[in-house]
Simulated assay, not measured.
Amino acid sequence: MASTVIEQVDTSEEVEQTPEDTGIQSFLVTFNIRRFDPEVDDEPRWVDYDVELYSTDRVLDALHKIKWEVDGSLSFRRSCAHGICGSDAMRINGRNRLACKTLIKDLDISQPIYVEAIKGLPLEKDLIVDMEPFFASYREVQPFLISNSKPEAGKERVQSIVDREVFDDTTKCILCAACTSSCPVFWTDGQYFGPAAIVNAHRFIFDSRDDAGDVRLDILNDKEGVWRCRTTFNCTEACPRGIEVTKAIAEVKQAVLRGGR
């Protein structure tokens, strides 16, 4: 009968593990951030930071690294970090973007990356602006379903696929203000509703279940409403959700002229 030999392995000495080579190269990237502390500064100032990053990192990762490892006084907004909450909208190399969706590999890291707060809203600190004027316009267009009838007990409000497609694009808005703060009319006119408010009005004006479209059209048929739009397409280019903002504004203008959707 064959015998079985069991070899005992000596585990008294730890085997040194070498880090696995991921093949991803790190880079030293310079960030030029427009800083402003109302308790110290009279005017905003630009401050340079050198950060070691990977091409797969995002601008938000760089801001985290600066705040956590270099300068804890840096202030900015962020929440979900996945392009849904819209809280980290800022100007990156002169364009409105979400920091959490802007990859380092998509930027020219041979040059400094410039980061500043979005325009047209009161600057509070560093990359943080006062969003209240933006949300005031949003609330004014009554961005909620208004119906004169009630659905049957236990039933939903039925809507066809075709009816839904009419306003499907404008349901994507995450209220980041990237479109509104990219609009030159909004920069110079503090009373203009702005693209985001009109987009959210569009979402309900063209909803077949809503009965207050005419009310919203009256609100937007104002000198500071849809007619202030100059169709520069800045808003469409800035939208991180790919909403055809300029098209939506044009459709609201046409509805105003028709007297209804």
Rank of each mutant, 00 (worst) to 15 (best):
P143K: 05
T22L: 15
T22Q: 09
A196K: 08
F204C: 01
P122L: 11
Y114F: 14
N200G: 12
V40K: 01
R34H: 12
L175E: 15
G154Y: 03
D207G: 06
D108T: 05
K155T: 05
E7F: 06
R228D: 13
P195F: 09
N148E: 06
R35P: 13
I113Y: 14
I118R: 10
L123K: 07
E156N: 09
A2L: 12
K101P: 03
R157S: 07
T231G: 14
V51F: 12
H64A: 04
V226H: 02
T11K: 14
I243G: 08
V5K: 12
G86R: 09
A248F: 09
K65A: 06
K172S: 14
F76L: 00
A238L: 09
R97A: 07
V29I: 01
E140R: 13
I249S: 09
D211R: 08
L220C: 06
K223F: 07
S182Q: 02
V15T: 10
E224D: 14
A178C: 15
V40Y: 03
L145E: 03
T246I: 10
D57E: 04
R95E: 11
S208L: 14
G120D: 12
A248Y: 10
R230N: 09
Y114C: 07
P19K: 15
V166T: 02
S149K: 04
V15P: 04
D106P: 06
M1H: 11
L217E: 01
F233G: 13
N221P: 05
K155W: 00
C173G: 15
E224R: 14
E165G: 13
K172T: 04
I161Q: 13
A2W: 08
R77W: 01
R45C: 11
L98Y: 07
V115L: 08
A238W: 00
D50E: 15
L127I: 03
F134T: 12
D189I: 00
D48C: 08
I6R: 13
P44V: 02
A248I: 05
L220W: 08
S55Y: 01
D106Q: 10
D189E: 15
L145S: 02
I109D: 12
E132S: 05
G23H: 14
V129G: 03
L220P: 12
Y114K: 14
S147M: 05
S208C: 06
G242H: 04
I249M: 05
S55T: 02
K125H: 09
V115Y: 07
F144L: 01
A99M: 10
S26T: 00
Q8S: 13
T246S: 15
G83M: 14
T246R: 12
R203W: 08
P195D: 00
S182L: 01
D130C: 10
P112D: 10
S110E: 13
F31C: 10
E165P: 00
I249N: 15
Q191H: 13
P112A: 05
S3C: 01
Y192P: 05
S87V: 00
Q8K: 11
E124Q: 15
I219N: 09
S160E: 07
A89H: 00
S137I: 06
A99L: 06
P38L: 04
S87G: 02
A177T: 09
E152W: 03
C80L: 12
G225Q: 10
G213F: 10
I198V: 08
N200T: 10
R157W: 06
F186V: 06
L53P: 03
C80M: 14
S208P: 02
F135T: 13
D88V: 04
G242M: 03
